[in-house]
């Protein structure tokens, strides 16, 4: 009996921390979402009213749409830029190590600080427009209604592509050189080698990196809050911004929880898929 109990004592503090600070708050959010809200005090049961209001007012679906555009575009670009950089960096050339370290820098920059840097870069009289002016191009309202979404995507890709670069580079290095040699003996062209040796070898690395990045990008708050606060208007109001605004802007905590609960199924699927994949890969 004692022997069976001992391991649990070793893991108990961690399990306790996660339960108290994540599992319990999750149940609290579920409870919150069907109480209070728009009609009545915070404790009265309102059933699905909060959800209905979020959906019928259109704020929720609007935020879902923007979150999807933001997430899908940003992840695709990060994979493209990071993967491309990794493929080039995988060859030997002069200055490779310096370039790799340099390209890695954005990943080390805290999200909020990255937002601050871009605040200067993208403002009306900011860095990018000053440079464009020298080239004779009219200044662009980067953080205006039209370009705010591309701007936060730009920031997200700038900050996040090194993650793909480094993981894919590591993935490339574990593909055995003998596979390439065999392909060359069989007369495979460079493109064919990429298609039949490199890509299959990278499959799991790309899948896991993309899924992780999808969940992180989906939940992105810092970058957007610092750069645009969801504006102008609602141009960059993603789910995390919406939840924050509902809960702490209008101070309707229950409504904020309701939006969070409603958002949960959207990426729970990704999370479980990821857990399964990582567990399988790590064994």
């Amino acid at each position: 009996m004692k022997k069976q109990l001992a391991p649990f004592i070793w893991v108990a503090p961690v399990v306790l921390v996660i339960s108290v600070f994540m599992l319990f708050p999750l149940f609290q959010a579920l409870w919150d979402s069907v109480h209070g809200g728009a009609s009545g005090g915070t404790k009265s049961y309102v059933g699905l009213d909060n959800f209905k209001e979020l959906i019928s007012s259109g704020v929720f679906l609007g935020a879902v749409g923007r979150t999807l555009i933001f997430t899908l575009t940003a992840v695709a670009l990060k994979l493209l830029v990071g993967g491309g950089a990794a493929l080039i960096l995988n060859r030997a050339f002069w200055g490779r190590n310096v370039l790799r370290s340099w390209l890695f820098i954005p990943w080390t920059i805290p999200l909020f600080a990255g937002g601050i840097l871009f605040l200067w870069l993208l403002r009306m009289n900011g860095g990018l427009n000053l440079m464009l002016e020298k080239l004779g191009v009219y200044p662009v309202f980067w953080l205006g209604p039209k370009f705010a979404m591309p701007s936060i995507i730009f920031l997200n890709v700038w900050k996040g592509f090194p993650f793909f670069m480094i993981t894919i580079l590591a993935g490339l290095q574990i593909i055995p050189a003998s596979l390439y040699e065999a392909a060359q003996i069989d007369g495979a062209s460079g493109v064919q080698q990429f298609r039949y040796v490199t890509l299959p070898g990278l499959r799991n690395v790309i899948l896991i990196a993309s899924l992780l990045s999808t969940v992180w990008t989906f939940a992105q708050f810092e970058n957007i809050y610092v750069l645009t606060r969801g504006g102008p208007g609602k141009a960059t109001e993603t789910l995390s911004i919406l939840i924050y605004k509902l809960a702490f802007g209008t101070f309707n905590l229950n409504m904020g929880s309701a939006a969070a609960v409603l958002a949960l199924p959207l990426f729970l699927f990704f999370i479980f898929w990821l857990v399964k994949l990582v567990r399988k890969e790590a064994e």
Binding site: F21, M22, F24, A219, I243, I271
Partner: peptide
């Protein structure tokens, strides 16, 4: 359980944590 907690985005429970 630990891996799930690592991946789970905390902004979902931000209101509950504020209450806590």
């Amino acid at each position: 359980y630990i891996l799930l907690a690592y991946i789970f985005p905390p902004f979902i429970i931000v209101v509950s944590l504020f209450r806590f």
